[in-house]
């Protein structure tokens, strides 16, 4: 798995295209199940919001972030995920917005622990902040 992260409009998609080619799916619009078979996804943070809002029953004692992260790791371990870092602002007043931010953060933290590479893009320039030997 490879993660490409950074703030909004930093050139993450173009950076990913240069490194890994095209044909990624759009996390803001794609059918939710496509994540588990696609080669790559952009707007993953938007995907997380739609996933969070879709109806789901949870077993007691399980956390949403673990459920999502584990499903991706098990079903699509080679996927390239492009996501905005959305947790670096004032904590929102709205409870749903707060949940979303934390869910994106914790899910990405699980995925980053599993990933072979994590790239962080600032001003179009990527820095590899994690690389497995």
């Amino acid at each position: 798995m490879i993660l490409i992260i950074g703030g909004a409009y930093q050139g993450k998609k173009a950076y990913a295209r240069d490194l890994f080619g095209g044909s990624f799916i759009d996390g803001a619009k794609c059918p939710l199940e496509e994540l588990f078979s696609c080669r790559g996804i952009y707007y993953f943070h938007e995907y997380v919001k739609r996933w969070m809002e879709s109806e789901r029953t949870l077993e007691k004692g399980t956390e949403l972030d673990e459920v999502l992260a584990n499903q991706i790791i098990q079903q699509n371990p080679e996927v390239v995920i492009i996501s905005n870092e959305i947790g670096c602002g004032i904590v929102p007043m709205d409870a749903g917005e707060r949940r979303w931010r934390e869910l994106v953060g914790r899910t990405m933290t699980h995925l980053a622990a599993f990933s072979g590479e994590v790239h962080r893009v600032v001003c179009g320039i990527g820095t590899v902040i994690k690389q497995k030997e």
Partner: peptide, 8 residues
């Protein structure tokens, strides 16, 4: 330091 849910 780090953002929300960053694992800090």
């Amino acid at each position: 330091t780090g953002g929300s849910g960053s694992g800090k």
